[in-house]
Design a protein around this nucleic acid. Sequence first.
DNA 1: TTCTAAAATATTTTT
DNA 2: TATTTTAGAA
Length: 742
Amino acid sequence: MVDDLFSPRFSPSGPDYLEGLNTEQRLAVETTQGPLLILAGAGTGKTRVLTTRFAHILLQQLAWPEQILAVTFTNKAAREMRERISAILDRPVENLWLGTFHSLCVRMLRQHAALIGLERNFTILDTDDQIRLLKQVMEPWRLDPKRYPPARIMHQIQLWKDRALLPDAITPAQDTELANGQVRAIYAAYQARLKELNACDFGDLMLHMVTIFRQHPEVLERYQSRFRYILVDEYQDTNAIQYLWLRLLARRKDGQPANIACVGDDDQSIYSWRGADIANILRFEKDFPGATIIRLEKNYRSTPRILSAASQIIAHNEDRLGKTLQPGRTDVDGDPIEVISTPDSDDEARIVGARIQTLHEQGHAYGSMAILMRAGFQTRSFEDSLMRMGIPYQVIGGLRFYERAEIRDAIAYMRAVLYPLDDLAFERIVNLPKRGFGNVALSRLRLAAQEAGLSLQQTLQKQLDQGLVKGKNAATLGEFMAALSHAREITSKDGHVIATETILEESGYLTMWRDDPKTVEAAGRLDNIRELLRAIGEFPTMDAFLEHIALVMDGDMAQDEQDRVSLMTLHAAKGLEFPTVFLPGWEEGIFPSQRSLDEGGNQALEEERRLAYVGLTRARERAFILHAASRRIYANWQDSLPSRFIDELPEDQIVRHTVSQQAQRSGSFFNRSPRPSMNRPSSSRYGTKKAAPRPAIPLGATIRHKRYGEGTVVALDGEQLSVNFEDVGLKRIMAGFVEIVP
DNA sequence: TTCTAAAATATTTTT
DNA sequence: TATTTTAGAA
C-alpha cells in the first residue's frame, strides 16, 4: 500500500512554508544532511525552525514520517511540535517518533522488555513508590535514616542511572559518598526487587534501553537504519545517558556522518542539578566531526533595551559558546528596566501588586503579566498581596495534579484492582481508610508473602480464606478484599471508569473524605477525584491511562483561559513569554542562591546567571527587578544585599528607584503591623531564642553536623570552624550549625 | 494501633 | 510560618 502522504494534492503549492524565515533560520531548515547544531538564543524562533525543518524533510520526500526521530524534553513541547507540523502539512500526522526521551524509550522498551527480564506490561513507578520500595530494600543494612536518608540514597542511584551505570559497573571508588560504600549493594538489591515486581523506575526507562542497545547490537541496528533523521530540542539540557542514547542511535554503519540536528542554547542551561551536562553542547563539534553550526541570534521577542540588559548579564559568564542577541524589533526602543529597592519583602509584594493594578488600569490584561521567582516559597507573599488587592492570579507549577495524595491513592486502588501482584499499590491502600492494619501487621504479611512466593494481596486473601486472620479486623479486611474483586469483575463488564468509581465508594475511601472534619480541603480532594474520573474516561483502557500519567506528570487538565497574573519559578518560565515580567528577590543569598553557590561554586554561579538571563528574556515589553533590604524567611527577618546581578546590568538601560517605608505607609491603606527595624536581630540567620548562650566549642572537640555527621574541630576562626569529618573530610562550618558530642 | 503533641525542617523539579 | 516527620502515651 502506498501512503498518499506525498501525493500531488499534498505537495506545497510553492515553498510557502519557508516564507518569513530569515536567512539563518532558512539555512537551519534546509541543511538536512550531516550533523547540525543550531544555537538558538532566546526568542529567536527555535520552535518554528524545528517544526519547519521536520515538515521540510517530509515535503522534500527525504524520509517517511516513521523514519524521523524527534526528541523533546517536555510533553508540552512535543504536543506543540506535533500540532505545528500538522498545521504546516495541513493534515494530522500519525506514526511519528516524536516525544520526550522517556516516552520514546517506553515505546521501545515495551517491544524489547524480555531482553532485560521484564514483561511487556511492566509498570512504571512514581517517586513515592520508589522511595517506599527503597526503604524496604534498605532494611537489612540497618542504616541510620537520620544520617543516610533513603531520599539521598535514591538520589545517588539516580545519578548513577543518569550516567548509564549499572550496579556492577560501579567501582568502590565511586561509592564513597554515602553509607561507607554500601550504596552499590543497595542499588543492586533495589534493581533486583524492581525486576521481581516487573517494574521500572523512571531512570530505568533510559537505562534499560541503553543496556539493550549495548548488549544486543541487532536491536540497535534496527533503529539506526530506521531513523534517517534525528531532531533534538533543548540539547543543552541532555544528561549523560540521554546523550549516550542519541550517540548510539546516530551512529552510521557506513561511516557517513549522521543526520542529527540538535537545537539548544548554552545560555539557557539551567538543569545541571538534574544531571544535565552543558558539556554536551559545548563539545558537539568534537563528537560529530564536520558538523555545521548555525547561530540564530535575531530576537523577535523583546525590546532592544531588555535585550541589551540580558546580553550584558550573560556576558559575565565564561563557559559559553558565544552568541549575541540582535534586536529583531526596531519598532521601539522600549522602556528602561525598572530596578526597585524596597525596605522589606512585604513592601516588595505590595509594590508589585500596585504596579500590576496600575498597568491593568492602563489597559494591560492581567494575563499579560507574570511574576517569576527563584524559589517556590517566594510565591506565598505575592499570593497574599494579590489576594488582598483582589487581583486574579494563578500559580503555575508547585504541586502537580498527579502528585496529590488523593489522586495517587485513587490510582493505587485501581492498580490493586487490576494487578493483584502490585505490592506497592496494595501497601499504599490496605490501611486507607484505617482498617486496623498497621505497620506491624503489614510486615508480618510481607514475611508470609515472601515465604509463600505470592504477592501481598494473594497472601492476605489466602489467610482470610483459611480463617487465619483473627479478631474484628477479619471482617473489615474481608470487605476490603471483596470490594477489590468486585471492582475487578465490574471492569470487564462496565468499563474502567465505573470500576474506579465503585472501588473508591465500596472501599470506604470516598466516605473517609466526606467525613473529614476539614471540610474545605476535603471538598477540594473530592473535586480532584471527580476530575480524575473525567481524565480516566478519556482513555480507552486503564492501562492506557496508567501509562499516560506515568509519563505525563503535569495534568494538563482544565486549562481555563482566564485573565490572570501568572506566578511561577524561573525554571518553570523557560520557553514562555509575557509582555510584562516582574523579577522579585534579586538579593544575594536568594538569587544567586546561597545554597547553590555553596554546593557548586563558580559553575553554580554561572548557572544562576543563566537563570537571570532566562528571566529577563521572558519579557517582551517591560521588566521590573526588585530587591528588599530585609526579608522574612520563615519566622525570622534577615537583612539582605542587592544581588550582584543588579550591578551587572547596563546603567543606561535601567532606571532605579527606592521605595521608602514612609512613602509606602502614607500611600497605603493596608494596616501592616509596624516592625521596627532597629531591634531586629540581624546576625544569625536562623536565630533562635536560646541562640545567645551557646557554649563555646573548644579546639579538638567532637561535634555533630546534620548533614556531614560527626567530626573533630581542627581550627577555630571566630564563628567559623574547620572540622575534619569522618565521612566527608575537612569542611568549614559555622559554629551555629553544629552541636557538641559529649 | 492509633492518636496527639512536640520537633524538625524548609531551592530550583522538563520526565 | 506552615508543613511534615517523630516519639511517646493511651
